[in-house]
Design a protein around this nucleic acid. Structure first.
Lengths: 148, 148
DNA sequence: CTACAAGCTCAACTTAACTTGAGGTCAAGC
DNA sequence: GCTTGACCTCAAGTTAAGTTGAGCTTGTAG
């Protein structure tokens, strides 16, 4: 009876390392899918583990769930990524990561230059008014993330 | 009458580039201080500009307002950083930035290795279970920031 | 002296990504 | 057959860093 192919939420939670509540949440957001047993319980096919893994990696790269959802949904047939799909996604995400790293490096170099100069004077300091500040947009909290 | 030494919120907002509401907010959080006129309006001494500049830089490094507040408060007499104070802060923050950059690089290299391997399989993938995952703690949303 | 811009306070709203809790169902072991 | 742990749903809470708005006061230019 041990179903090799079907997993309960608890099992997915344990194997993927994300909380049950988070899995429910991802499902509500359309990032993963499940079907139900006669008793209304979720059952996941094994590949949900891969999807969750991808979600976690993308999050570490700094990509929002919304964007991850879009990326996953844009795959033909909304299927769980094949090797080729994964190549596309990971390449794009790596590029973003590169960009972010480059940004932080610039900031660090600015900081390094500034150590000892005591120049924090709004107008002269190389750290300030570089013109490449984060573009702010929208309402509410503006920068929870140091974003791409 | 042009007071060379005293600034209104509006003036600070304009010169520092942060909103009036944000300044109120920083003050409530104890990050900056002001005194009041007889008519209960805030007046800032000129060095608030330096403080705000420091706050902004620290934020870009990815440091929370709470921590920034602690750092500023821990300065002798809670004074606005002198050149030496700034050296200490900027050095510490630059190190954090370095650490963060290193982390992201590891992630990127993992991603790079993974492109083409199609290995997203929870147990084998080099991107997963590296053991150096972000330490999770506290309640509520766990990782809004890719933190130090 | 009277507008009108700029300030003030305080409460409520925003976003993201979840968690927590209440109240009720399902399933498997004893 | 019953108890216990895993599930389910849905609403409300959490955190950070501010923003927005209402209702009221100040200050300054004309």
């Amino acid at each position: 009876m041990a179903p090799v192919t079907e997993l309960t939420v608890g099992q997915v939670a344990m194997r993927s390392g994300v909380a049950v509540s988070a899995l429910h949440f991802y499902e509500a957001r359309g990032l993963i899918r499940s079907h139900r047993t006669s008793g209304n319980q979720r059952r996941y096919s094994r590949d949900v583990l891969r999807r969750v893994a991808i979600i976690k990696v993308a999050q570490e790269v700094g990509i929002s769930l919304a964007e991850i959802g879009t990326a996953l949904a844009s795959l033909p047939e909304g299927r769980t990524p094949t090797r080729d799909d994964w190549n596309l996604l990971s390449t794009a995400w790596r590029d973003r990561l590169d960009h972010k790293i480059a940004q932080l490096k610039k900031l660090r170099d600015g900081l390094t230059d500034c150590i000892g100069c005591g120049c924090m004077s709004i107008d002269k300091c190389p750290l300030r008014n570089k013109g490449d500040r984060l573009a702010k947009e929208g309402t509410g909290a503006r920068r929870l993330l140091v974003e791409s």
